[in-house]
C-alpha cells in the first residue's frame, strides 16, 4: 500500500522528536548527577564532605544550582559584542547536545545511526572550541580573550591525536558506523589468543592499549578538564572564557562542558570498552540489558576522569603543548602505521 502523506511526512519527524526529547531529558538528569558525583569525588579525595545540605546526602544540589542560575539576572557587559556574546553559550550548549544524537547506548538504541557516525561525533567535538573562542572574544575583556586564545590552540592540538586514534579504530573495524564499532569488538584479541568465550579481552582497549591511553588523556584535554583546564585556570585567568558570564548564559556554558564530558566518556566506552557488550558473554552477565553495561562503563570512565582531576596538578601551558605535539602525535602516528601493518600481515583486515 502506498504510504500516505501522514506516514511519510508527519510520523517520522514526530517519532524522531520524541526520541530526541527523551534523550535530552535523560542526558540532563545524567549531567545533574555527574556534576554531583564529580564534586563528591573531588571532596572525598580532599577528605571533605562535599555537597550534603540540599536533599538527602545533597542529592538535589545540582537542581538547586540550576534554579539559582536561572532566576539570577543575566549581566551583559556594556562593551561586549552583544550578539556574539549571547550566541557563544548557545553554540557551546547545543553542539555538545547534538553529538549525542548518534551515540548508540544499546544495540539499536540511538536517535540516528548514520554510516559516518564516528566522523560526525569527531566533527562536532572539533566545533566545540567555537563556543569558547566566541565567548572569549565577545566579552571584550582581557582574561576571557587570553582564555579563548589558549583554548583555540589547545583544542586544535589535541584533536589531531584524537583524529589518529579514530583512524586506528577505523582500521580495525572497517567502518565508521558506531554500532559496527561496538559489534566489531565481539571478536578481537581474546578470540585470536584462543579464549572460547567473548570477553572483555576482545575489546579494543587491550589490542590498542597505547591508543586507549592517548585517547583518554586527549579526551580530558579536549573537554578542558583539569589537569588541562588552562582556558579557565582560576589562578591565572579568573574563570577564563566564562569570566563575564552570569545566570543562564553561564549555565549553558557549564552544561555544554559537562555534556561534552559525558560524550567523551560515551565515546571512550564505544571505541575501547565494547559499548553495551557484557564483560564476559556467559549466563549471569549477558542477561543484563546492554544499556546497563553501557552506563556502568561510561560511569567508570567518568570516575577515572574525576580521579585524574583531583589528583594531578595543572599542567603548564608549554608542557601541555609539548605533550600534544611531541608525545601524542608521534605515538599515534606510529600506531596508525603499526596497526595497518599488523592487520595487513596477519590478514585480519
Amino acid at each position: 500500500m502506498e504510504p500516505t502523506f501522514f506516514e511519510t511526512y508527519v510520523v517520522p519527524p514526530l517519532w524522531m522528536l520524541g526520541q530526541s526529547v527523551l534523550m535530552l531529558v535523560i542526558l540532563l538528569l545524567t549531567v545533574a548527577y555527574i556534576l554531583y558525583a564529580d564534586r563528591k569525588i573531588f571532596a572525598a579525595v580532599q577528605m571533605r564532605r562535599g555537597p550534603n545540605v540540599v536533599g538527602p546526602w545533597g542529592l538535589l544540589q545540582s537542581f538547586a544550582d540550576l534554579l539559582k542560575f536561572v532566576i539570577k539576572e543575566p549581566i551583559i557587559p556594556a562593551s561586549a559584542n552583544k550578539g556574539v556574546f549571547l550566541l557563544a553559550p548557545l553554540v557551546a550548549g547545543v553542539l555538545a547536545l547534538s553529538a549525542w544524537a548518534v551515540i548508540p547506548v544499546a544495540d539499536g538504541w540511538s536517535v540516528a545511526d548514520p554510516n559516518l557516525g564516528l566522523l560526525f561525533v569527531f566533527a562536532i567535538s572539533s566545533l566545540e572550541v567555537y563556543g569558547i573562542i566566541m565567548g572569549g572574544w565577545a566579552s571584550n575583556s582581557k582574561y576571557p580573550f587570553l582564555a579563548s586564545l589558549r583554548s583555540a590552540a589547545q583544542m586544535v592540538s589535541y584533536e589531531v591525536s584524537i583524529g589518529f586514534v579514530i583512524i586506528t579504530v577505523l582500521l580495525c573495524v572497517g567502518s565508521l558506523n558506531l554500532t559496527d564499532v561496538v559489534n566489531a569488538q565481539k571478536d578481537g584479541l581474546g578470540t585470536h589468543l584462543g579464549i572460547g568465550v567473548n570477553s572483555f579481552l576482545d575489546w579494543h582497549w587491550l589490542a590498542l592499549f597505547p591508543m586507549f591511553v592517548v585517547f583518554f588523556i586527549s579526551a580530558i584535554a579536549e573537554t578542558n578538564r583539569p589537569p588541562f583546564d588552562l582556558p579557565e585556570a582560576e589562578s591565572e585567568l579568573v574563570a577564563g572564557h566564562m569570566t563575564e558570564y552570569s545566570s543562564t548564559p553561564f549555565l549553558l556554558f557549564f552544561l555544554g562542558e559537562f555534556v561534552a564530558i559525558t560524550l567523551m566518556c560515551a565515546l571512550t566506552t564505544i571505541l575501547f570498552l565494547g559499548g553495551w557488550l557484557p564483560p564476559v558473554d556467559i549466563a549471569p552477565f549477558n542477561w543484563v540489558p546492554g544499556i546497563i553495561w553501557f552506563v556502568l562503563k561510561g560511569m567508570f570512565v567518568f570516575f577515572c576522569m574525576a580521579m585524574v582531576r583531583s589528583i594531578v596538578p595543572r599542567y603548564r601551558y608549554d608542557q601541555l603543548m609539548r605533550l600534544g605535539w611531541k608525545v601524542f602525535l608521534p605515538i599515534s602516528l606510529a600506531m596508525v602505521f603499526i596497526t595497518a601493518l599488523v592487520l595487513k600481515v596477519m590478514g585480519w583486515a
Partner: peptide
C-alpha cells in the same frame, strides 16, 4: 569539510 575547514 566541517572537520577540516570549520574545525581547524
Amino acid at each position: 569539510l566541517i572537520v577540516v575547514y570549520v574545525g581547524a
